[in-house]
Each structure stands twice: as structure tokens, then as C-alpha cells.
Amino acid sequence: MAVIDATDVTFSYGDRPVVEDVSLTVDEGAFLGLVGPNGSGKTTLLELLIGLRRLDSGSVTLFGHPAHESRDGDRIGFVPQDVATANGQMPTTVREAVRMGRYPRNLVGRFTGADRRAVDDALARVGIADLGDRRVGRLSGGQRQRVFIARALAAEADLLALDEPTVGVDAESREGFYDLLHELNDEGITVVLIEHDIGVVTTHASEIACLNRELFFHGDPETFVETDALAEAYGGAQSIVHHEH
């Protein structure tokens, strides 16, 4: 079953087109890496796919419903850009942040045992159980990433959408972070990931979508590295550093 089904998606800021005629399908259990040069419309496309923006034309269905009227909020775990580098002064603790994952289904009233268990399990799953009482704003970038993943897990999300999650995260944490994403994907969570490091994406993702306003390529990583899609999208010579582990 398709988690996301986008057809001829077009979006402009004023008269400047940002996304044009993009059609793609993300199947359940996929790990899609979204790549493209700066300003290529990656973030906008991701926001369109999960219903954060209204399309100018075309259509997006998310879990079988039009994306912008989706009421399946707790099925989507969104990790926004810059969370690793943002210097939050808000005194929210890790546990408080992860509890937010339960809020959409529990806006008022007491938390049940199931809610508390989901939060504890999520904290343990991403390996930050011992950080529960720490302030999110005082964590390292890598730890903060895990808080947002834990929030998505506490929500029991079926789809993880991540916008350049490892900007400002050190290399070692980054490796661990992608390993975690891999494991979660193996457990059945669909992942859509924007990543500027093409080598990383081609190593970890099961499929690649290459975007520069229009969709230049959508397929498996092996085919992607063999085609000229990247050079076309970036408008010049690009070489790929393929990471092997």
C-alpha cells in the first residue's frame, strides 16, 4: 500500500515556481532519500507530501486521504530542520518533549498506563532513557535528534519525515543516528529523509528521489549513481563519495 501518493504536484511562492509537476509514490516500508541542490524545493516538497502546505495544483494522498486535510497526525513523526543546532531556551525536559507524541490522541485528561509505557519504551528504544530529566535545549545535537525520533515513536508513527536531520551533528553520532533509522525502517516504519550528503543517502536509503524543482530521478540508489540524473539536477559535474561500511 502507498503511504504517500503524489501526482503532478506544483507549488510556487508568488510567481516563483518551487516544485513543478512532481509525481511519486512512497510505499509502506520504504526508505526514501530526497536529494537535490540548495533551493531545489526539497523542504517544500516534503511539507507538501505530509500536508503542511496546500498545493497549487496536483494531488497528494497521505494514508489514503488528501494530505492537507489529513487527520492522521499521530501517524506522522516529523523531525524539523535545525533542531540539532537551534538553541532552545524553553526549559522543556526530554520526557516532556517525548510525551508530546501522545498529545494528538490525548489532548485533555490523564495519561493512561499505555501512554506512560509508550513514552518509556520510546526513550529506551532510541537510547536516551537516562536523559529523561535533562533539558532538551542543553543536549548535544545528536541527542536532540533522538528526542524528536522518540517523540515520533511515542506517537506510534508509521511515517518518519526528516528534514536534514544531521546538520550540526558530529560524525560519530551521525553514524549511530543512521543505524537507528535503518533499524526502525526494518521494523516497518516508512522513512522520508532529506539529506544534503548524497553519499550517505545512497548508502542508507532503499530509494532515491532527486529533485531540482522537477523530479529528475526516482528509483533505487544503484541505478541513481549510474545515471546522469545528479549532474542534470545540479547542472554540472558532481561526483559521489559512496560510503561503504
Binding site: G51, R71, G73, I76, P80, V83, T92, A97, M100
Partner: peptide, 13 residues
Amino acid sequence: VTFDEVGARAAGL
């Protein structure tokens, strides 16, 4: 919404 406005919108609030 105060902690993460975009995340809150993605979560359907």
C-alpha cells in the same frame, strides 16, 4: 505549539 510549531502542525493540531 510553543515547543515546535511545525511539528505540532504535522501532528494535526
